[in-house]
Measured scan of single mutants.
Amino acid sequence: MSGNGNAAATAEENSPKMRVIRVGTRKSQLARIQTDSVVATLKASYPGLQFEIIAMSTTGDKILDTALSKIGEKSLFTKELEHALEKNEVDLVVHSLKDLPTVLPPGFTIGAICKRENPHDAVVFHPKFVGKTLETLPEKSVVGTSSLRRAAQLQRKFPHLEFRSIRGNLNTRLRKLDEQQEFSAIILATAGLQRMGWHNRVGQILHPEECMYAVGQGALGVEVRAKDQDILDLVGVLHDPETLLRCIAERAFLRHLEGGCSVPVAVHTAMKDGQLYLTGGVWSLDGSDSIQETMQATIHVPAQHEDGPEDDPQLVGITARNIPRGPQLAAQNLGISLANLLLSKGAKNILDVARQLNDAH
């Protein structure tokens, strides 16, 4: 009898209710805020589980004197976190989706994509230029951005401005803007500013005609071990179906173009009346040469937790077992079709030249 009692006690200790789920994140304040929001949602869904947040620095956090596009290494903000995932030191990792490459290392998958916040870019102005827009900034004003995508589009749109690289986390960039006289304004992701509670610093939100956004911008991705079915089931509740389908289309477009950090590629997606609209573009580094096109596809946005595919093969690095396969494939095909259209119009040449120029500098 006593033996059975011990077995029952052991089973209770090993039951999922007692389990601590370890969540990996970057150390920056924004990353911690984003991770806290994901953990809060998981806690609400699984009140019996405990969650421990483990923060670590990544290569991208450490190399702050070089433009991201020049470092010449993929997975700048993800490699150390993936290493911890691989060694079973954490069970899942919360990322900004735009930091996750469209091809993940073997053994990993994006197990959830959370509801997207505003994906557009924002302009934050130096205190002396508050009330201005990019259009009304004085001639030769210097605007800071760490992104080739932003610089290429904005140089084309605002030729009277000069664009220079600015690195560091959000706090560091804002301090550089406010305390030094080098920059009249800087460009940042609206979602990051909003998550930090800095709505009052948003001086201008850039519309798609001015600057399309990065693939996955404004959404959070939760990376897990691809074979860890328990954790895949656990994080599945975080999937937002519309965000998922938009981001599958965007990531398929980028992957098929073979774009990345070192080339200016941008997108804009919208879901309306059962249609998914995808606009994508590529630019030369100075913005003088560009190709942009829009395509659409009829896609039914499923309700969360309709029964999805059981075999769960990944699409552009994403596993969404609780979302039907048909809409996911339709979104992926839309991204591939748009990429093929741009490639047929000469996108590869623009991107190759951009890559060579970026590598040469």
Rank of each mutant, 00 (worst) to 15 (best):
P264Y: 01
H120T: 14
L42T: 04
G335S: 01
G259A: 11
L334G: 15
F253I: 13
I63C: 11
S288G: 13
E306M: 04
S288E: 14
K227H: 05
D65Q: 07
T66L: 09
V130N: 12
I318D: 04
E209A: 03
H199L: 09
E73T: 14
Q217C: 03
S290D: 06
W198V: 10
A191P: 01
S69H: 12
P127R: 13
I166W: 12
S57F: 13
S344V: 06
R22C: 12
T319D: 07
I21W: 10
K74M: 03
H83D: 12
Q153H: 06
F108R: 14
L342S: 08
N171H: 10
Q296W: 07
E89K: 09
G308I: 14
S28L: 01
A67N: 05
A214V: 01
E162F: 14
I113C: 11
G60W: 07
I323K: 03
I21P: 05
V93R: 11
Q180Y: 11
T109I: 07
Q304T: 07
N358M: 15
K79V: 06
P309Q: 10
D233V: 07
D352R: 10
F77W: 10
D61F: 01
C211Y: 09
I318S: 11
A40P: 03
L64R: 09
N88W: 13
R22T: 11
G236S: 12
L30V: 08
T109L: 05
V235L: 10
R355M: 15
L97N: 04
P302I: 01
G287P: 01
P159G: 09
W283N: 12
K348V: 01
V142T: 10
L42V: 07
G346T: 08
S262Q: 07
A151N: 12
P264A: 04
S57M: 01
G72V: 09
V267L: 11
P47R: 12
L193T: 05
L177C: 07
I231Q: 01
E223H: 06
L285F: 14
G218Y: 01
Q217L: 01
L315T: 03
A249I: 01
P101E: 08
H120N: 12
G317L: 03
K74N: 13
Q181F: 10
T109M: 08
D233S: 11
N200H: 14
D312F: 05
L285P: 14
G335M: 04
I299R: 08
L30T: 01
T294G: 14
D121L: 03
L134C: 08
A270V: 12
I71W: 07
D286R: 12
C114H: 05
I21G: 01
Q275F: 06
A330Y: 01
L134Q: 01
I323M: 05
F108L: 13
D91T: 03
G281N: 01
L97E: 04
D91V: 04
G111T: 03
I110W: 01
E250F: 01
E89R: 13
G280V: 07
D91S: 09
W198C: 13
R175H: 05
L338W: 01
M196T: 06
S165E: 06
L285Q: 07
Q356H: 13
Q332G: 08
L148D: 06
Y277W: 01
I54M: 09
S284N: 10
V301F: 13
K176A: 08
K115I: 08
E210M: 01
I323E: 06
R149Q: 03
K348N: 15
R173H: 03
T136A: 08
L177G: 01
L97Y: 01
E86Y: 15
G60P: 01
G107M: 13
T319G: 07
V23Y: 05
K98L: 01
F129W: 01
V94M: 01
F163V: 13
E242Q: 10
Q34A: 08
V143A: 13
W283R: 07
I299C: 15
G281C: 10
H239N: 07
A330R: 15
T136R: 11
G131D: 10
L238P: 07
E310W: 03
V235R: 01
G111H: 01
I248K: 01
L42D: 01
G317D: 05
K272G: 01
Q29P: 10
V93L: 09
T41G: 08
E80A: 11
T269N: 06
A320E: 11
R201L: 14
H239Q: 07
P324E: 03
E82L: 08
L134E: 04
D240G: 01
G308S: 09
T190N: 15
L245T: 01
G287R: 07
Q50F: 08
R251S: 06
L30D: 01
F108Q: 15
V90H: 06
S146L: 04
Q328R: 01
F51K: 05
Q328N: 01
G192H: 01
K27D: 14
A122E: 05
C247G: 06
P106E: 14
L238A: 01
F108D: 01
S165Y: 10
T109F: 04
G236M: 01
G72T: 09
L100Q: 09
S69W: 09
K62Y: 12
R32N: 13
D228T: 03
A84L: 07
P101T: 11
D352L: 12
L154Q: 09
L343K: 05
N88P: 07
A360V: 15
P264K: 01
L276T: 01
E135F: 11
C114T: 14
A331N: 01
G236C: 15
N349M: 11
I113V: 01
V202A: 10
S45C: 15
T190L: 13
E310L: 10
L64A: 15
Q153N: 01
L76R: 11
V20F: 09
S284V: 01
H120I: 06
C114I: 13
L161E: 01
A331T: 08
Y46R: 08
G216W: 01
K74P: 06
G60E: 01
E306C: 04
A189Q: 03
K128R: 08
S69F: 08
D233E: 11
R201M: 01
A67R: 14
A191H: 01
V202Q: 06
K98S: 01
Q296C: 01
L137K: 01
L174G: 04
G218W: 04
A266T: 07
Q332I: 01
I166L: 11
V265A: 15
T66F: 09
A320P: 04
N200R: 04
H268E: 15
H199K: 14
S290R: 07
A347S: 12
E209F: 15
Q181T: 13
L206A: 01
V130G: 07
G335K: 03
V282S: 05
D61P: 03
A189K: 05
L193E: 01
T59H: 10
F77K: 01
L174M: 14
V143I: 13
A297K: 01
K176V: 11
V23D: 01
I205Q: 15
L244V: 09
I54W: 04
A31D: 01
Q229D: 13
C211V: 12
T279A: 13
S290L: 08
G24W: 01
R164A: 11
L232I: 14
L342R: 01
T145C: 05
D91L: 03
R149E: 01
L244G: 01
I336F: 10
A112K: 01
V215S: 14
E242K: 10
V353C: 01
S165N: 10
L170P: 01
E306K: 15
A112E: 01
R164H: 14
Q314C: 13
Y277Q: 01
M56W: 08
P208F: 14
L92Q: 04
Q29M: 13
E52N: 04
N340S: 09
I350P: 01
S37N: 14
P105V: 06
L92W: 01
I350M: 09
H126A: 10
L174D: 01
I54D: 06
R321D: 04
N349Q: 14
Q50Y: 12
A214L: 03
V267N: 15
D36V: 12
G48Y: 09
N333C: 01
N358T: 15
Q328M: 15
I323G: 04
V235C: 01
E250Y: 01
C247R: 01
H239C: 10
L85N: 01
K70Y: 10
Y46H: 13
N322P: 09
V224R: 03
G335A: 03
S75M: 06
V94Q: 05
G107Y: 01
P101R: 01
K27E: 10
G111L: 01
V224W: 03
G280K: 09
I205P: 01
V202D: 09
D99I: 01
R325S: 09
E139H: 14
L100Y: 12
L97W: 01
I71A: 01
V353K: 01
F125T: 04
K272T: 11
I248A: 03
V20Q: 12
I33W: 12
A270H: 11
S337N: 15
V237G: 05
S288W: 14
N349A: 15
S147P: 01
R225G: 01
G280Q: 01
R246V: 13
G335V: 01
K43R: 10
L170N: 10
R175T: 08
L148T: 07
G107K: 07
G111P: 01
V282Q: 05
L97G: 01
